[in-house]
């Protein structure tokens, strides 16, 4: 469903962040995108969503990401931002959740029904009428995920979904990710979480893939991980 074909990108000329990056993600796959800080994980997400212009080809369901396909592609790909404060820009949770569906032409009743379904699915129906700025960090992250689920995307992209969460909330979020049936692309350096939620792993380093394989294999390879400034998941140490 997602394909990168020789994709290169640089924020500043002469300092490429992605170099001829190629990979393919099939329908229903759960893929972890790992790499040290600054490896370019967030950049991959932004390129995929057409937020950054790149060289090479990015395809979603066979359609190239470009100006006239952006809207359709962004409907298919739900992106959970690293910082939930940026994700949630409306005054209340419900309004944030209906924002996307309404923009895509749902009626108010449909949009609210979708919001209800997403909240119930994550077991956070009590957050529906709350004001965003009064949510705790964990609540906000869950609400942000619910917001994206309400858009009923075909694939879900997450950037550091467990960053800045306490252990209990981290566990909750991991369970939610595991339960999602959509195609998943999860960027993180929390390798324990990746091990829990993904079956395949892409290791990004120096702007290209240093490894692409089963999570069980890549995440057990101490030498490989250390060569790219990462450590074995705690659980495997």
């Amino acid at each position: 469903m997602i394909e990168f074909d020789n994709v290169s990108f640089a924020y500043e000329p002469g300092r490429p962040v992605l170099r001829k990056l190629s990979f393919r993600i099939g329908d229903g796959e759960a893929v972890g995108l790992i790499g040290a800080n600054g490896a370019g994980k967030s950049t991959v997400m932004k390129v995929l969503l057409g937020l950054l212009p790149c060289e090479g080809r990015v395809l979603v369901d066979g359609a190239a990401v470009k100006w006239d396909t952006l809207r359709e592609i962004r409907r298919k790909l739900g992106f959970v931002l690293q910082n939930s404060d940026h994700q949630m820009f409306m005054p209340t949770v419900l309004e944030d959740m209906t924002f996307g569906p309404l923009n895509y032409g749902a009626t108010r009743a449909e949009a609210e029904a979708r919001a209800d379904a997403a909240l119930a699915r994550l077991g956070i129906s009590e957050l529906k009428r709350r004001h965003n700025h009064k949510l705790s960090g964990g609540e906000k992250r869950m609400a942000a995920i619910a917001t994206i689920l309400a858009m009923e995307p075909e694939a879900i992209l997450m950037d550091e979904p467990t960053a800045a969460l306490d252990p209990r909330n981290r566990r909750l979020v991991i369970n939610v990710i595991r339960s999602l049936t959509q195609t998943k692309l999860v960027a993180s350096h929390d390798l324990d979480m990746i091990l829990d939620t993904c079956s395949r792993v892409l290791l990004l380093s120096g702007g290209t893939l240093a490894a692409d394989g089963a999570a069980e294999t890549v995440l057990r390879d101490r030498a490989l991980l250390e060569a790219h400034r990462m450590e074995l998941p705690l659980r495997l140490q």
Binding site: L51, R71, R74, F89, G100, N103
Partner: peptide, 12 residues
């Protein structure tokens, strides 16, 4: 980033 979040959810 905030504007991107709006665009990603179909803001037009």
């Amino acid at each position: 980033e905030l504007y991107a979040a709006m665009l990603l959810r179909g803001y037009r």
